[in-house]
């Protein structure tokens, strides 16, 4: 009896090679844009608050919050 020829099932990656690089490149090119946006939105808000209240500490708080939120957003979209 001849041995059966075993054809291995295609892995998910082999089946759709054309979308392989997409997520990685998406993430790689979106990260700087998200970080910059986070700093601008929340740092900008902090700047407004410091302008209104006179408490300068709001600027660094806003910038750090923005970076943190942007990093969290990248994790949500590409890291999960």
């Amino acid at each position: 009896m001849a041995p059966a020829i075993v054809v291995p099932a295609m892995s998910e990656q082999e089946r759709r090679p054309e979308t392989d690089g997409r997520d990685f490149a998406d993430a790689a090119w979106s990260v700087p844009s998200y970080l910059l946006s986070g700093i601008l939105v929340w740092g900008g808000l902090g700047w407004l608050l410091s302008w209104w209240t006179g408490v300068h500490a709001f600027i660094p708080i806003g910038v750090i919050l923005g970076v943190g939120l942007a990093a969290y957003l990248v994790y949500l979209k590409y890291g999960r």
Partner: peptide
Amino acid sequence: FPAGLPKPIYVLLAPIEFLSNLIIAPFT
């Protein structure tokens, strides 16, 4: 609004998404 997040989080993240996709991305 990426799916499956508690609503308060969207308040924090939506402005970043908006700025990033519609203003920063074409600029860069």
